[in-house]
Amino acid sequence: MIETRSNALVARAMLIALMAVTLLPFLSMLSAALAPSGSYPAGLQWPSDPQWGNFVKAFEVANMTTLLWSSSLIVGGVVPVSVLIATMAGYGLSRIDKGRGKWLYLVFVLGLTLPFEAVITPLYYEVKALGILNTRVALILPLIGLFMPFSVYWMRAHFLNVPQEIGEAAEVDGASDWKQFWLIQVPIARPAIMSLSILLFLWTWNQFLLPVVLVQDPEQRTMAGALGAFQGQWGTDVPLLCAGALLILTPTVILFLIFQRQFVAALLQGSVKG
């Protein structure tokens, strides 16, 4: 009993230490963001005259409203389509799991560990040939493709766990395959779809390599890509850079705080399966 209690205390202390390490960089950025613009402040100090105006300036020069809109458009282009076609494919693959179609699944799995860097060069030339370089579509289409291995893998794993009889009963009932999929399978898959949507949202929002290579204009980029451009343009001014970085990571952090439970569940399951 005594040991358990001391254990709990040690555990608490360790977790608090880990949390401190996790939060310190954010605090350090905040303290720098409040220093006078253009100065080189010290690592962590509460500024005598906090310059909250840096955030206003960063908001303006980073064109935050445009960035938010741009990232939302990209997410809106990537996530619904990816989730829809991945759910369909996951369902389809689960139905031919034991049979001649198994190799198709392996084709998708092949892409699971693929580093994006391995295809970024040809993607550039492909996107250029399609005439969509420097547009949001240049991010949306490739991202849908690149997310397919994981998404399909994820949804197939879900459908494999759904008892076969559910579908077969409906079949007997004479429901068309499409109808059966929509009216029976998709509603059951809702939790899996929700988690997948969260993961894809995060991965799209935070995607960096593709916007750096495929889209020059920061206002057509994802948030992470825009932050890269912001660093390129304002990295010379530490307080402004820190203010901008904090602003840019705020939207996801807010969403995360609101949907904390769902995010954590998705991230945990996502890594277990991925």
Binding site: T22, L23, F26, N206, A224, L227, G228, L249, T252, V253
Partner: peptide, 13 residues
């Protein structure tokens, strides 16, 4: 919540 923060923000940040 705290420990997951680094997973949520962009790596660039």
């Amino acid at each position: 919540t705290v420990l997951f923060l680094p997973q949520v923000i962009p790596l660039v940040a």
